[in-house]
Nucleic acid binder design. Structure first.
Lengths: 357, 357
DNA sequence: TTCTGGCACTCTGCCCAGCTGAGTGCCAGG
DNA sequence: CCTGGCACTCAGCTGGGCAGAGTGCCAGAA
């Protein structure tokens, strides 16, 4: 960066004058990241020029590295060791130096085929998360399709005892929620049928968040004697809607954590703890921009236990809107292009599968 | 301590002569297990007599240890190291030397209180597994109440489109299963109501495995024109019953694996892998005797990846019959009495909670 | 017989020193 | 502005020596 615009005769040098060294430094950074991800060992100048044809000598590379270190993109564990990228270095790599690596056609076929075997929503999610863990060889996380974006497919009321009902809510994403309802007074079959019909008539097809508004005045349509029971049912229904926004998550591939590094116990412990906290995972995915792929690296992650990991996440959904998120968690020293490619591909195919079913 | 028994007219020695060494050797084994579990380090003769008042000298203990080693209950990592128990040693300890350590009253209250906060079956299981992991500081596994032992509380049929139904099965344990049914012909509301009534009339209260037998002749009770639809519904119902015997499992506390030992990656890896295989876990719990507590130690476990772990499991259920299993997985060097106490207590309380709800 | 104290022995773990090799930073010359 | 050369640094390995824990065995006491 210091020598950026220096004067240069250089008619031979194909580069006019503006883009000179910055470009090469970026190439050096890219090479460092690639090598380090591959070998997991600090990479030195000599090895770099040998493995990538940078067209310059180790000494030159050393100068570039010096500059890169100055600016905080790389860092040496000790004097006289090679360099490793910093979080900032990975960030630059992801933003400007890497291209998402698309899946090969056979891989795509395999993904699609594997997901198509699913029989219900649980199975879709389970297969997705396993697939993602396998493809990336990291920890995969998949959020169940959110209720917020879903619509009501059907509401069912079942009488268990005269005063005890079971309320079942079925969404268009195939999710089913059930709740017990204790009514203040016995509920007859006729009332039940009436209520069932009205509920479905009014709320069927609604987005879940809109349901309370739509059903607000429902009790008014019933005999005064029946209103308490109706209100109770509605209360429980609304509760279920609100509470169940507490979303569910599935994860797989924790065994891949063992590939993290040699300094193990210290690293892996907090990660395992984080993974058990659904809340943490939900927040992690929640921060993902809706449809664009998000990469958070090391200290960019708010949760301290995950400060030595990176998270690649993206929304997925049936149709054009995303209904939930999925992603993977791995060491900051991960293969970003490959991981991003896998995440993107899986998200797409899950979306398709959901749209079809 | 060396001079312990030196000068004393030995008429005082309370031991006659018959029960002599065998008994003391067992005491030595017990002491070794206890110390090793506490310190995680091979235990030597001197330390033993210091920490437990065995009333004999280290030299004597050494002889006993020699005998115990001969018989395979303990083993030395190297010459001139202390002894550690073998799987066989732990087995003897569990069978004859240890008493299940009951929970203290405050602990019981805490357990009960924590479990009582649960709102539905998922929540009960989730709370149970977390609780167990916390209490034992190990990996906890809880199987969802099995469908096999459950009975039908209600079967609901919902018409989504003229030819598409949704079948919902509710069990007495609060579990809900739903299936889509594609009927060969449109199904009217009248038929639907009739079918629903007959299904519940005949199968309500039945054990799930008996349902197919009970409903076998159902189609005969309908108009010939309706029989195909009825048969389809039954097929799907039976499928759901059979398939969903594929039981679900929840686990927690994997972060506790990091306390396993120093030789980490090697030990933890296969365990994490095993834990991701529901099949393995199910088999593990499946081998548990129905209601009695089962302890499997090290190589007694069929699955190779878990050969350095022990599993303590027990059935739980509402009422007197067990409907599912739960347990913990930890290093063979675990606190058996404490773990067994926790597992037993939690199983009891979950049973109570289930019975009440 | 059974236990005990004493003794010699073995072996791991640790510390220290010295060496090697990778990698750097700097400099003078192209 | 790049390059080759050179001196320097430092992590990691190796080997010797030391200390401590623990054992096994034995002869003598109860």
């Amino acid at each position: 960066m210091p020598d950026d615009g220096k004067p240069d005769g250089r008619l031979i040098d194909p580069r006019p004058s503006a883009r000179p060294l910055d470009e090469r430094r970026l190439a050096v950074l890219r090479a460092i990241v690639q090598d380090y991800v591959g070998t997991e060992e600090p990479v030195g100048s000599k090895a770099l020029v040998e493995r990538h044809n940078l067209g310059v000598s180790p000494a030159t590379v050393r100068n570039d590295m010096s500059a890169l270190e100055e600016e905080g993109y790389i860092h040496q564990p000790h004097t006289s060791a090679g360099r490793i990228p910093t979080d900032k270095g990975y960030r630059l790599f992801v933003d400007r130096l890497a291209e998402v690596k698309p899946m090969t056609p056979p891989e795509r076929r395999a993904i699609r085929h594997f997901l198509e075997g699913a029989v219900d929503l649980d199975d879709v999610v389970a297969r997705t998360v396993r697939l993602l863990a396998q493809l990336t060889r990291q920890v995969a996380v998949v959020q169940y399709p959110s209720l917020t974006r879903s619509t009501v497919r059907h509401i069912e009321l079942v009488s268990l005892t005269p005063t005890k009902l079971m309320l079942v809510l079925i969404t268009n994403t195939g999710r089913v929620e059930q709740r017990m309802v204790d009514c203040p007074a016995p509920v007859g079959e006729a009332l039940l049928a009436d209520l069932r019909a009205k509920l479905n008539g009014m709320a069927g097809g609604c987005r879940l968040p809109e349901v309370p508004t739509v059903l607000e005045d429902l009790p008014a349509g019933f005999e005064p004697a029946d209103r308490p029971a109706v209100s109770t049912v509605l209360t429980v229904l609304f509760e279920a809607l609100a509470e169940q926004n507490e979303e569910r998550i599935m994860l797989a591939g924790t065994a891949n954590l063992t590939r993290f590094g040699h300094d193990f116990p210290l690293t892996i412990r907090p990660v395992l703890e984080a993974l058990e906290e659904q809340v943490v995972l939900l927040r992690l995915l929640g921060e993902t921009a809706d449809s664009a792929m998000t990469v958070r690296i090391g200290h960019e992650i708010a949760y301290e236990g995950l400060n030595s990991t990176s998270v690649v996440s993206v929304g997925y959904g049936s149709g054009d809107q995303s209904v939930a998120k999925l992603g993977v968690i791995g060491p900051t020293r991960m293969d970003y292009p490959g991981t991003m490619g896998a995440v993107r591909a899986v998200a797409r195919y899950v979306g398709q599968i959901l749209a079809e079913s």
